[in-house]
Design a binder for these strands. Structure first.
Ligand SMILES: [Zn+2]
Ligand SMILES: [Zn+2]
Ligand SMILES: [Zn+2]
Length: 762
DNA sequence: ACTTTCCTGCCAGCATAT
DNA sequence: ATATGCTGGCAGGAAAGT
């Protein structure tokens, strides 16, 4: 996490990614001070009136100004029609406002009461009232927090009642998280069932966060967005879920990776919770079928999936599937059925505590990973088991003042926003268990047992006609499911001017929106990346690519010190550290990439993007001698990256073709003829079409010497038989079905893409 | 201790929109 | 032509697995 933070800092202060505009589908109008005041959208009327268009417009700031007006009127005593007496102190207010924001008041005022007496500390109630009229909590003394929360619960003011936990779900926020995972997932409000004091903010008054700045939460609902976009979803359930409460506790910079700047920032941070886009469907569905643990859905889905794909084979996957996952995921509803009835929070009081059930909190962080245990096994991978600590858990030992500003734009949502009927638990759980809630009420494959790999694609509807346009959706090798309407899958959290994007499902935070979007596919499985060789399916393209490289056995990373080839960066890294006592990036002291001790060759067995910087300086097949001198063997004439600036940019040099590389290798090889270890030239599949068409060198020339497959095996290329471009060494046969030779995995009829049946170039 | 896998900031390259 | 959006590869740290 801290690393992330550091990165984040770098990103902010340094050269951040190119600023990207907001996704078009996002309802930006709700964003405080940033969105357009007026959003309009036209839609062609599909009712046969082809020429007409429906126009929708939303004043995105109306709700804000309206609330401000109410507050001004209250302060001026205008139109106040109810009096609240709190231990002798009277507060005038508007019954409409109170009833709309508090389930308690709603009930009491329904009985036509004009005067209501309460037994709270007046200053606490004052804060509640201020919140009701402003959607903000400003500079509340930390020692009042507990009472404030209790008051919020009693009055059914959800935002306040939930003050204690939500932010805790946000992982990876700088200065807010703790490495220690001890308390993991067990944050609760003070309701007697909570966790050890350490993780309970309410209990540690000293450690309690002091909310000193504006802290507001609102709940812009999904509906809002819908209205803006003129969609009709209207059920209304969507709107309530969003409550998101953020609880920020100042964290002690005790993490190893924390940068100094971070620490400083944490001294006084402002957190602004801005928008949340998201979860529309998510929330709605959640309500309908949520299960505390989420397992239940899982089982359901499995069934569904199985049914649909009766024919789907998946033997192999099945075998490899971790038993753990199977068992847990396949669990029948029985367990979940016992859903913590806490769910029925009819009373505001249950709000905080129940929501924060361990299951929920931990689930958000851990569940996802558990399911997939990865790419490895069966998989649907994309989720890691790694544990993620949540912010709150990490209460700090050093509490200090922490300024925070949260704004939940959703609040404008409408009735019900106050949480009267809302079940906080539900909301919470919805946020943390989205993975279990697929778009159409079904669930995604996430937890599918391996066997269903084939079924995977069935979970959601496949989109035949891409919403975004033909090109995008028809990406080869990518299966797309219907995209959730108005997909909003993240919240924006602004801290000290830095924006973080928080996944609504697992609460991980990202400094780059693109990272979050990529990550979110793990939950939504909007896109699927099936292995072309086996039945596995991945949520991230990169994971699939890495996996496929295992099938092909291609080794793209070459150590320049000894010439060995490795399958991935980690292996290379390990090798360099052990064998050469150096980091592959070169001397630590120097930043320039020219010092790299390895080179990355273009991928020849798969059709992947090969960036120009790949194997940049290797145009000459450089070899670094033990004494540190680098020699370029047979530098080709054209390979000099003329004008190429050194340093980092050098790595972005021109594209190096395989032809060039092979020539080099061949020549290079000449020098090393002699000690040819046994190699197998694996000639994978795939790109053959492309290459052949382009009339390039036949694939066999792409073969890379590969050492017999043993983990961590490496292949020495430079010494390889002087083979100029290659010749198959031991493996004549392998060439016939290279990938098979290497990987005899599950091949099933339903396999998305069967391995190339024709052997390439032989 | 070592290997494998996951994760995420970053950025190149391409597609589409303006 | 330029701006914006999307995709996915890469580095390298970290967690999980062995
Ligand atoms: Zn997530
Ligand atoms: Zn595979
Ligand atoms: Zn080496």
């Amino acid at each position: 996490m801290w690393r992330k933070w550091r990165d984040g800092c770098r990103a902010w202060t340094g050269a951040p990614c190119r600023p990207r505009a907001e996704p078009q589908g996002v309802c930006s109008g709700g964003r405080k001070g940033r969105g357009p005041r007026l959003l309009m959208e036209t839609h062609a009327c599909k009712q046969g009136m082809t020429g007409l268009k429906l126009i929708s417009a939303t004043d995105t700031r109306y709700s804000e100004s309206l609330l401000r007006s109410f507050d001004e009127q209250r302060k001026a005593g205008l139109f106040c029609d109810v009096t609240v007496v709190v231990r002798g102190r009277t507060f005038r207010a508007h019954r409409n406002v109170l009833s709309a924001s508090s389930s308690y008041f709603h009930e009491r005022l329904s009985a036509a009461a004009d005067v209501i007496e309460l037994d709270f500390r007046p200053e606490v109630f004052q804060e509640v009232l201020n919140y009701v009229y402003s959607s903000k909590i400003v500079r509340v003394r930390s020692d009042l927090l507990k009472e404030l929360i209790e008051c919020g619960r009693a009055l059914g003011v959800r935002f306040i009642a939930n003050l204690g936990f939500p932010l805790s779900h946000v992982k990876g926020l700088p200065g807010l998280s703790r490495d220690d995972g001890e308390a993991q997932g067990r944050v609760r409000l003070s309701d007697g069932t909570r966790e050890p004091a350490k993780s309970d903010p309410c209990r540690i008054s000293a450690a309690m966060p002091v909310i000193t700045d504006a802290f507001s939460l609102s709940s812009q609902t999904f509906e809002n967005c819908n209205s803006i976009l003129d969609k009709n979803d209207g059920s209304g359930d969507g709107g309530e879920d969003d409550d998101d409460v953020l609880f920020v506790s100042k964290q002690e910079p005790q993490h190893k990776g924390v940068s100094s700047s971070t620490n400083e920032n944490s001294e006084c941070s402002d957190v602004e919770y801005v928008d949340s886009l998201s979860a529309e469907n998510l929330s709605v569905k959640e309500k309908r079928q949520r299960s505390p643990s989420g397992r239940r859905m899982f089982a359901k889905n499995n069934d569904a999936a199985t049914r649909r794909n009766s024919g789907a084979p998946l033997a192999a996957a099945e075998k490899s599937m971790p038993s753990e996952s199977i068992s847990s995921q396949a669990q029948p509803d029985s367990t979940s059925a016992k859903t913590p009835s806490s769910l029925s929070p009819s009373s505001a009081a249950s709000v905080g505590g129940s929501c924060a059930s361990p299951a929920a909190s931990s689930g958000g962080g851990e569940d996802p990973r558990r399911r997939v245990s990865s790419s490895e096994g069966y998989k649907v991978s994309g989720v890691q088991k790694k544990r993620v600590t949540t912010i709150i858990e990490e209460s700090s030992s050093n509490p200090g003042d922490f300024k925070l500003k949260l704004t939940d734009v959703w609040s404008s949502s409408g009735p019900g926003g106050a949480g009267k009927d809302e079940n906080p638990c539900e909301m919470d759980s919805s946020l943390s268990t989205f993975k279990e809630i697929p778009q159409n009420g079904e669930y995604s494959r996430d937890g599918w047992p391996a066997e269903r790999s084939a079924a995977v694609s069935q979970g959601w509807e496949r989109v035949e006609s891409p919403p975004l346009g033909p090109a995008r959706n028809s990406l080869p090798g990518v299966r797309r499911r219907r995209k959730a309407k108005g997909t909003r899958n993240y919240y924006e959290l602004i801290m000290d001017g830095k924006t973080f994007y928080v996944c609504v499902v697992c609460k991980r935070s990202y400094s780059c929106l693109t990272s979050l979007k990529r990550h979110f596919n793990i939950h939504s499985w909007e896109k699927e990346y099936p292995c072309r060789y086996c039945a596995r399916v991945f949520a991230l393209a990169e994971y699939r690519t890495k996996h496929e490289l295992q099938h092909t056995g291609e080794r793209r990373y070459q150590c320049l010190l000894c010439g060995l080839f490795f399958m991935n960066y980690q292996e290379l890294c390990s090798h360099c550290k052990q064998a050469h006592k150096q980091h592959p990036s070169g001397r630590k002291e120097r930043r320039d990439t020219d010092n790299k001790l390895y080179r990355l060759l273009p991928c020849k067995t798969l059709e992947i993007k090969n960036y120009s910087y790949v194997s940049d300086d290797c145009s000459a097949t450089p070899v670094i001698s033990e004494d540190g001198r680098m020699c370029h063997v047979n530098p080709g004439p054209e390979r000099e990256p003329a004008g190429e600036p050194g340093g980092a940019s050098s790595s972005q040099g021109r594209v190096l073709s395989w032809d060039e590389i092979f020539v080099d290798m061949g020549e290079d090889g000449e020098e090393h003829k002699g000690d040819a270890p046994e190699f197998e030239f694996i000639i994978p599949e795939t790109t053959r079409l492309k290459t052949q068409q382009s009339g390039q060198r036949s694939r066999e020339n792409w073969g890379v010497p590969v050492a017999p497959r043993t983990s961590g095996g490496s292949t020495r290329a430079t010494d390889s038989p002087a083979t100029p471009p290659l010749r198959t060494v031991t493996g004549g046969e392998s060439s016939s079905q290279p990938w098979q030779a290497l990987e005899r995995r599950e091949q099933s009829p339903s396999q998305p893409t069967s391995p190339p049946s024709s052997t390439t170039t032989h």
